[in-house]
Amino acid sequence: MSELSIITRQTKMADVIHKNYLLLPVINRFGIKLGFGDCTVEEICSDANINLSFFLDIINTYHNEQYFPKEKMQEYPVKLIVHYLKETHNYYKHNILPEIENNIKRLIKSCPVDCDNLKLIEEFYKEYKDELEYHLNNEEERFFPYIIALTESRQSMQNLTEIREKFNFSYEIHNNEHENVVAKLFDLKNILIKYLPPTYDQGLGNNLLSDLFIFEKDLNDHERLEDVILLPALQKIENQFRKQQ
């Protein structure tokens, strides 16, 4: 189990990346960049003014699927979680999504003849990307500010109604959008793996697929934070407001 061991405050940050290089974009979201020397996780977090315990829980959750201290994570301030989630959105929107799009463009360029199939994939991806961005923006404009506004407001039924109307957040729409984007990403992977005739450069195809797998893993972790921590937190706060009637 050594590769899945838990990362602690004494672990050297360099060893964290040696253990699991997929954590790089995750630590970037906290504003941490490469060039750690021999500094430990604790030292780096303290220098950069990062909540150490939250940082450890996030990277361990990401690193080891079995590690998910639900109760403990529910104790973190909503603002802290939302901030991390927003940084993750930025990473998706500005790094991963354009990169995947470029990978598909390169794939099309590498195809000597008869590339209609690849263009079909490009269109499918564009549709997926638009829907995902729409979903992420919806979260940033409705879900996140709604839950933050509730945590900062005096608890009363009237305030709940007002804040709710202002942000117009719907659990149902949120869940539907979410399910759809998860399913589409899965479909894209499976179509590439099983059905698309390989009329393109294989190395570029592998890059694309590997990006999709890494992205899917990242997205799953991200969504888990929302579904298991933030949405139940929202429901709990809403109920507290209702009780003040």
Binding site: D116, N117, L120, I121, F124, E127, Y128, N180, A183, K184, F186, D187, L188, N190, I191, K194, Y195, L196, P197
Partner: peptide, 22 residues
């Protein structure tokens, strides 16, 4: 059977396999 869940995904599959014209 196909491992494709969405309508758009099924559409891509159908075109790839010449079941419907693009």
């Amino acid at each position: 059977k196909l491992g494709i869940k969405t309508v758009s995904g099924l559409t891509v599959y159908a075109v790839l396999n010449n079941l419907i014209p693009k």
